[in-house]
Write a protein that binds this DNA or RNA. Structure first.
Lengths: 166, 166
DNA sequence: TAGGATTGCGCAATCT
DNA sequence: TAGATTGCGCAATCCT
């Protein structure tokens, strides 16, 4: 984390462009409070790309050779810098949100696991109770017909098992 | 995604340092195959920081004034660029992993929810069965003492409820 | 102190 | 045409 003013200048050569140094005007149109100023605007001079004119470009005729002095250039740069900052903030925020989501889901998982444990226990108790009761009945009374067969319950025991296939 | 060579130069002013342009030697010790060459090495000259000597610096006396010509500088830069790339790759990977984790946790959650549903249903059936049976007993036999009170089971019904408190 | 790891930032090429 | 992304280099810090 650092929040220091930083002045940079870079000359990107491209498509045959020579760079000539010029004294800069320290106008600092920076919105952020940058203290130090030291502009150095390299003068871009298009190097003649051979003898031919630039009519009917071979494939794609981009890069009208940007003039780094022009207001338009600076404006474009500034807008882009803003966009970049915005985009990065978003990206960061998103990453943070995703991490948060992981935490939430983990918690939820634990809750669910706990609930499953509880339900399983309840089921188990209930089944034991039922079986015991059924035995008692069998001992004390002779039911004319089979009322409820404990076997049905036993089937329910762990039928829906899930294999952790991973 | 773009993989184009790019030449840059920037002069960072700091702690009172003026920049004077110098003609560069395009030696290009770059390992990466950068086609175009155009070095512009700004000569860094320390501006006298007042009249006092720089003995016993007030706080931190860093920045021995980097010489952008030196091999050491270039080596440092290159190492740092590598480190940066590495760090960014990691960061990206991590973000990806986190996203993946979210997906996995979501799936797991669904599985757990399904299991809970199943268990709940089983419990419900079992309880109904038990209650019915208890009624039958009550109708047909007069138990000397209370054998099992169905109320106990009803208590177990939905005890462990969970509130989604975000 | 040295040196790798992070982070913020600007530029330019692309993408949308 | 313009904003959004993305790769990259620089420098300041952070962290060992």
């Amino acid at each position: 984390m650092s929040k220091q003013s930083q002045q940079k200048l870079n000359n990107t050569d491209q498509n045959g462009v020579s760079v000539i140094q010029t004294q800069a005007h320290s106008s600092t149109p920076n919105s952020a409070g940058a203290a130090a100023e030291l502009q150095q605007v390299p003068q871009l001079v298009p190097v003649s790309s051979g003898g031919g004119g630039k009519a009917t470009p071979p494939s794609k005729m981009k890069k009208p050779i940007l003039d780094k002095e022009s207001d338009e250039y600076r404006q474009r740069r500034e807008r882009n810098n803003l966009a970049v900052k915005k985009s990065r903030m978003r990206s960061k925020q998103k990453a943070q949100d995703t991490q948060q989501r992981v935490n939430e889901l983990k918690e939820e998982n634990e809750r669910l696991e706990a609930k499953i444990k509880l339900l399983s226990k309840e089921l188990s108790v209930l089944k034991d109770l039922f079986l015991e009761h059924a035995h008692n009945l069998a001992d004390n009374v002779q039911p004319p017909a089979a009322a409820v067969t404990p076997g049905d319950l036993c089937n329910n025991n762990n039928s829906g098992n899930n294999n952790n296939s991973q």
